[in-house]
Amino acid sequence: MEKLTHAANAVSVLKDGDVLLVGGFMMAGSPETLIKALLETSEVKNLTVVSNDTGTTDSNMIKVMKQGRVVKVHGSYIGSNPMTGQMLIDDADSVTLYPQGTLAEKLRCGGAGIAGFYTPVGVGTIIENGKEKRTFGDREFLLETALRGNVAFVKATVADKFGNCYMRGSTKNFGAIMARAADFVIAEAKKIVEIGELDPELVTIPGIFIDALVQSEDI
């Protein structure tokens, strides 16, 4: 199966109303080539974006949001993107904030066939509103449910043409989890090599999770 394609073709899989998972922690591991293609070549709207932070003022995501195409955000820390902060002020229901580890685990479960999990994080705070609370031993836990996307954008340092991805340094963050939690996963990579050229010991994301592969413009 040929996965290598160009960014505009890859992002054309998105449909109006989709849930889009976007990897990265601020600019580290942020799939800017794919977000730029979403900005410039796609007109899909009513998107729900799942992202730790929705990027920074340097990110193309803020431009997509300025086009009014993102109607809902699930994130954790949004202080680096003033557009997301404004969304929250304009409509409190448009931005759902989670403790960062809860967001990560929701996505991990989404990719791993787990429906939900009980976490001690958020007990006694506004995070527990509306959630099942259960005591195990002498400690209270909240039920959090899995989260999945229709499409995920992630960024790798090196990928082979099978889709195996090596994410270097602190770029693994959310991308490595999101790549397992969406129906269609697009990876951009700074460097794309032939099958067999990426050491299997270095694979962060096995290639079976990747549906389309795009050369990063930002290398």
Partner: peptide, 24 residues
């Protein structure tokens, strides 16, 4: 008890990893 992520009526940056860290 600790409050370190939100001032009511001000722009909310989100809790990030703070809730996880103080519990864990």
């Amino acid at each position: 008890n600790i409050a370190n992520w939100m001032v009511p009526g001000k722009r909310v940056p989100g809790m990030g990893g703070a809730m996880d860290l103080v519990v864990g």
